[in-house]
């Protein structure tokens, strides 16, 4: 029996990160992703076990080291961590949260990470994202589900001129091609 535990293939393999027009696009390596859903009363224990205190304020991300918790809804957070850490995190949270009710689901492969950087990042994203990305309207640390043309994304401003995108796996090739086109059309 072959051991395929390391045999991964990204849906974007072979599509390239950018055709180099401005070099604003890059693909992010695999990471662990978990969807935590539960009542707000559980968040304190999540913070202790996960090491990041999930934001209660809507559309805000909390970061600590290589871990992050992104507010997606009033009972929903996307937890990000290094690749391979998901099983340990699930175990840690189970210990910390018992006997409270919550839901924690590994979605590491459900979506793909992309990054748009540079002074044109806003313009590239606004080719398909209808939100106001001005730094006053969409400050560093803001995150939200929204749309990129015909696909849903999670958009997260990680720096003044850097946005991280999470795209559902089967929509990622579309999202990447769309962004590449937007970069060419600046």
């Amino acid at each position: 029996m072959p051991d395929l535990s390391q045999a991964r293939r990204s849906v974007l393999e072979g599509l390239g990160s950018s055709d180099g027009a401005h070099g604003a696009l890059s693909l992010l390596p695999p990471i662990s992703r978990l969807i935590f859903r539960g009542r707000i009363s559980t968040i304190g224990r999540v913070a202790a076990a996960f090491g990041v205190e999930p934001a209660m304020e809507p559309c805000r991300a909390a970061v600590s080291g290589e871990r992050a918790a992104l507010w997606l809804g009033p009972d929903e957070w996307l937890l990000l961590a290094r690749e391979g850490e998901a099983p340990a995190i699930i175990g840690r949270l189970a210990d910390a949260l018992a006997p409270l009710s919550y839901s924690l689901v590994d979605v590491s492969h459900r979506q793909v990470g992309l990054k748009v950087t540079g002074e044109d990042a806003q313009a590239i994203l606004n080719a398909g994202c209808p939100l106001d990305l001005d730094r006053h309207a969409f400050p560093i640390g803001m995150c939200t589900r929204t749309l990129l043309q015909k696909t849903e994304i999670v958009l997260w401003r990680v720096a003044e001129a850097a946005f991280q995108l999470e795209v559902a796996r089967s929509f990622a090739p579309y999202a990447l091609r769309f962004l590449q086109q937007a970069e060419r059309d600046l």
């Binding site: 809507p58 559309c59 809804g73 009033p74 939200t144 849903e152």
Partner: peptide, 9 residues
């Protein structure tokens, strides 16, 4: 209304 492509509420 549902904020489908947002907070989902």
């Amino acid at each position: 209304w549902r904020h489908l492509n947002g907070c989902g509420r």
